[in-house]
Design a protein around this nucleic acid. Structure first.
Lengths: 346, 346
DNA sequence: CTGTTAGCGCATTCAT
DNA sequence: ATGAATGCGCTAACAG
């Protein structure tokens, strides 16, 4: 059933296919992409010809002619964090279901990198763009505006999105984190976080909530963004205890970090959650409720990915071209889903 | 400094740019992409014109004309596992350094999905393809052969790669895992793994090594592939203990799983590594040496990604077109890097 | 160092 | 339901 495809040398084109099927190129094209416009018989003949010749469409030519690429550009800070990888999986899969493909850029939490990715990627004439957060360089904004394509900004809530924004308030999440720990009876909660901007904003919310509760200012350990968060658990916890011996709970900037902290707390003989409350952030720790001692600020990365794909597809497929305001932006804050609180005896 | 770009309506093309700079289109093209062929003065004029007009190249047209897209297709089983996400990050970053962009497909460990992704992605005329593993459908192979582009298969060692393969022997890794546990004095090591094919092959090696050591056949708990491996720790360990109460060590198919097992072991009051040896797989657990009780079969996903990019770039940039045999395939097995072994007293 | 000619492979528009 | 003509925006191959 296999074959050498073309008798000559290069890959068969639509023209070859048409000749083989005994129709004109445009009919062959329609048979492939808009079968409803073509007689069933010819559709079949073209399909057979395609199969037999091993025809592979050239979407460069197609895109050039139709000004539609079915390509989406996504730029994320990292693929190593479960939040983003969950999101990416959902995003890519949901887009693929509508025959969109995704080209990926990794910004490493740097708006300059984002700009560089975007600048080169726009030349592929994507039908849509997915960005993370709302911090972009001026040139990024300009490029995007000139490109005039749908844009979705994920993870952050903002009243002034470039186009559509889907996310939640990091500040509120941080606030909720503090209040949870406070309500559980912890009086010296601290923050363990990486230095990315979203974690920073959560920390701000946390501090503010502490101030509002007339609590002493929470200690904060900040470490550079890097892949193995779990590995940071030991260092971060040690650093905290060295600085604030009386800390009785920690708000971690990721679930992986929380796991690492948990392991190290065990090693140190600190009982969790009695001596130390550990609060994660994300959707991993509680995914299977397997670690009852931990609680987490739950954020569903996959959900954000799905919503993002949905919004982008809606914008891209035009139909009724919905202005940004019509779609608005959904605040997907599951930060209130705090669980497994246990009154400590500290 | 910003501007509305085009005075008319649609985005400026190379022709517009050329007119603005007072040169022919082809000269403008060269000024942009092959500056060494052009007088510095004209290069500058073109650059200014580009800046001023907000020109964005159209790589669809460019690719169509030049038969070069600087696009690479990568298909991975998952982006949620640290091994793959580390690899992806390294791969994408290394390719980007040579101005290649990456389109991502997610196979969810299914060769059929891989085939579907490939079939559509090939129509973008990528310059190269990165696949995971060596199990592909017949049509996948056919498509790839007809496409006639460089291919890199990652993670598995095989004497018969489609083109270039970079990986290691999963079997050997499994063997090494068993031997490590055995050498540490564990006499009833078991396997906790997901049901993907590479983990399965590692298990085979593990079992074989056990047979060679005249050990009883290790118990095996297999669970379906799914995102939150860490969450599986509890269920998997419980299942194991229910079935094989005397198991004294576990070989986990991922580091995340190992972490989950560790946490649950703590919860059950099983001391690690005394009562239970826990062996991970990957590059996370020991990344910061933060959890001394665990050991791991170390595999460096990022390294595989870098090597993969390197190999692919070598093949793509042609120059001397190196046949597969010349490049060969590198066996990157760091499975022997077993550490933190502690003689248990079981 | 620069320009001319031609065509990459396909889909749009308008016919029929 | 099918076809003919035209052009999408760019670069290769040659010329000068």
């Amino acid at each position: 059933m296999a074959n050498r495809s073309s008798r000559g040398s290069s890959a068969p084109t639509l023209k070859d296919l048409a000749r083989l099927a005994g129709v004109s190129p445009i009919t062959a094209s329609r048979a492939l992409h808009r079968p409803e416009l073509v007689a069933e018989a010819t559709r079949l003949r073209v399909a057979q010809a395609a199969e037999q010749s091993g025809y592979v469409p050239n979407s460069l030519a197609g895109g050039l002619a139709s000004r539609q690429t079915r390509l989406v550009v996504a730029i994320v800070p990292s693929v190593g964090h479960s939040l983003f990888s969950d999101m990416l999986d959902a995003l890519i899969t949901a887009l693929a279901a509508q025959r969109y493909e995704t080209t990926l850029g990794i910004s490493h939490y740097d708006p300059q990198h984002e700009e560089r990715w975007l600048a080169v990627m726009l030349s592929r004439r994507p039908d849509g763009v997915v960005l993370t957060g709302t911090e972009h360089t001026a040139r990024t904004r300009r490029l995007l505006l000139n490109a005039d394509i749908p844009i979705v900004e994920l993870w952050d809530y903002t009243p002034h999105p470039l186009d559509v924004a889907i996310g939640f308030s990091q500040e509120d999440a941080g606030r909720a984190a503090f209040r949870h720990l406070w309500a559980c009876g912890y009086r010296r909660p601290a923050i363990l976080r990486s230095d990315d901007s979203r974690a920073q904003r959560r920390a701000q919310g946390f501090l503010r909530a502490a101030a509002e509760a007339d609590a002493p200012e929470p200690a904060q350990v900040v470490f550079p963004e890097s892949s193995p968060q779990a590995g940071r658990g030991r260092d971060a916890l040690d650093a905290l205890l060295a600085r604030a011996r009386d800390a009785d709970a920690v708000f971690c900037s990721s679930d992986a970090l929380a796991q690492g902290v948990l392991a190290h707390a065990h090693a140190l003989g600190l009982s969790v959650p009695r001596r130390l409350g550990v609060l994660g952030f994300g959707d991993q720790v509680l995914a299977a409720d397997s670690i009852p001692a931990l609680s987490t600020v739950r954020v569903d990365g996959a959900h954000i990915g799905r919503l993002g794909a949905e919004a982008l597809i809606a914008r891209m497929s035009g139909g009724a071209v919905i202005p940004a305001q019509d779609i608005g932006f959904k605040v997907v804050a599951r930060a209130s889903t705090l669980r497994d609180a246990r009154p400590p005896s500290a």
